[in-house]
Design a protein around this nucleic acid. Structure first.
Lengths: 311, 311
DNA sequence: GAGAGTGCTGAGAAAAATTCATGGTAAGTA
DNA sequence: TACTTACCATGAATTTTTCTCAGCACTCTC
């Protein structure tokens, strides 16, 4: 037994707030401004709370109205997305994916042409984004997440562990101080991802060395940038071996110490729970998993604790 | 410009699905079964999708209907919660909090009486829960989370770092193999939290010791249980020093090696973003933060990297 | 200070939701 | 098998809700 406000009035409320005007909202909803005014009044009477403050010919959301709007917008958006998903043809060839930036540029992009060869009919609409997304609020179909694999209310498929090794440009290795033991890093610039400052410290632990104070340090906001900086001879960064394998085999990057730090994080393919996948979505998912197994540098080389598939 | 289905029909749809019957839904909504039938039909015509399969005198959700129901329920629930929050008196003395179990039993519970002394008017409704919760879907006002402090769309306040030390019962130490160096743990049972198996391995790294294979091992599902198991002389567990300080000072637990493992996780107080707090919520929040600073065992003793306040 | 733009209000008109009457189907029961 | 009951569908009638219209008020702009 629910206790809900007049729902149509909510639609009017949201449109009015969005447009900042009853008249404009009326235009959007194909009704007169008067109808909008009536609706808002009905809602305000029901709630017993003033949602808009009127002064002359302008209206403005009250603080209460603003707070309420956030939830109303969110809820209506969810309804809109769900309705669209239900209505839309089950057999579209378009797959919308959201991908962790580093994985996108260093892994997916280089292999896109292979995918398009295999599935010329499927159109991938790709979006780079860090962090989680709400599948109930977005038309995105699938995503590649970076993290611990512990996420609620979504289907999670393990793709690839992230093990970090130090990387630098070959030029740095020639011209600078030699790197024979981890401690030699004290004479170099260490490049940090600013949100993951501890990674170097952990790496030294694994390498069985004291944490050293580097000659210099550089903080960048993403692993994409730190790897690029290492390539530009700005210092030594920690990078995932698989993702940088092209740069390594081409000689743009070298690995001074083949000591991997297991971050216990990984890349995962995720999508909404209990959602029937389209043929295109299935194709992409299976291609991704197959392709990743073929490209995975670790697996055989460094056997670590087995990563779960995320609950 | 939104594209929304008839919203009132959604309410009817949700009630019908929940009740598993149009007649029952009608009763709930104070209308006839016929009205419900009409509404559902309108919705199905709009969507172009069958939501219920009718066979004789029974109705059942189709797969499409089930999928749609999830979102509709979610959205209506959000509206209900938001509406209730808006309508409810701003000045209630009730605060609903959800707390990580270990923190609840070992920290908050023992201090509850102090809170009630200071604020006899405020009623705390406490709920133990692991994992995140959606403040838009729940009437919970605040929560104590355990984790890395990186959560989106909520206000986060740092409370206390979690640093783990080995703990066991004094009896175990007397009767069993002595514990002089970390390696001696090989002769004991190690107690693991099953979802955080790596913690012992990391601790050995910090302790500067090889990871040993214990004589025996025990897996339990929460740190609450592992601590209890250690107390029962079942083995050696990793526990937070602050949370177990009572057991330690009372002699029920001892710390064989005062080597803390920084898990980079912590307890945080969180609540909805942009939400005006009630007087009672503010009181609890401030009490909690003050009290925690007074009780924090670390801080002075082990200076580690400073924990952020979580964006 | 006239005109345009916006919002409010109340009464009537239009639209939507509900009921009512009727008919169909399946399951339980004598 | 026939009867009863519980449930849902449908179309027409009715009630309720929503919308429009017309008149008024306010204020910003020129």
């Amino acid at each position: 037994m629910r206790q809900l406000p007049p729902l149509n009035a909510l639609r009017t409320f949201e449109a009015s707030a969005r447009n900042g005007s009853f008249a404009a909202a009326g235009k959007e909803l194909f009704v007169t401004a008067s109808a909008v005014s009536h609706q808002i009044k009905t809602l305000e009477d029901y709630l017993g709370v003033q949602l808009f403050s009127r002064s002359g010919r302008t209206v403005e959301l009250t603080p209460a109205g603003q707070q309420y709007l956030v939830s109303v917008k969110h809820a209506l958006n969810e309804i809109e997305v769900a309705t669209h998903r239900l209505t839309a043809s089950k057999e579209t060839n378009v797959v919308q994916i959201s991908v962790a930036p580093n994985f996108l540029t260093r892994w997916l992009m280089p292999r896109m042409s292979r995918f398009r060869e295999m599935f010329p009919d499927i159109e991938l609409q790709i979006n780079a984004s860090v962090g989680l997304l709400d599948f109930n609020q977005s038309s995105t179909d699938m995503a590649v997440y970076y993290g611990g694999g512990e996420w609620d209310d979504i289907e999670v498929f393990f793709l690839q562990k992230v093990l970090l090794v130090p990387v630098c440009s070959p030029k740095l290795l020639e011209s600078g101080h030699p790197l024979q033991v981890p401690g030699d890093l004290r004479h170099h610039t260490l490049i940090y991802v600013s949100t993951r400052m501890w990674e170097w410290e952990s790496w030294f632990q694994v390498a069985g060395s004291e944490y050293i104070t580097p000659k210099d340090s550089l903080q960048l906001s993403s692993s994409q940038l730190t790897t690029a900086a290492a390539q530009e001879s700005l210092g030594v960064a920690l990078a995932d071996l698989t993702l940088t394998s092209r740069e390594i085999s081409s000689g743009n990057l070298v690995v001074p110490f083949d000591i991997p730090l297991d971050t216990r994080k990984a890349f995962y393919l995720v999508h909404q729970k209990n959602r029937p996948l389209t043929v295109a979505m299935k194709a992409f998912k299976e291609w991704l998993i197959t392709e990743i197994q073929a490209s995975d540098v670790y697996g055989a080389e460094h056997s670590g604790s087995l990563p779960g598939t995320g609950r």
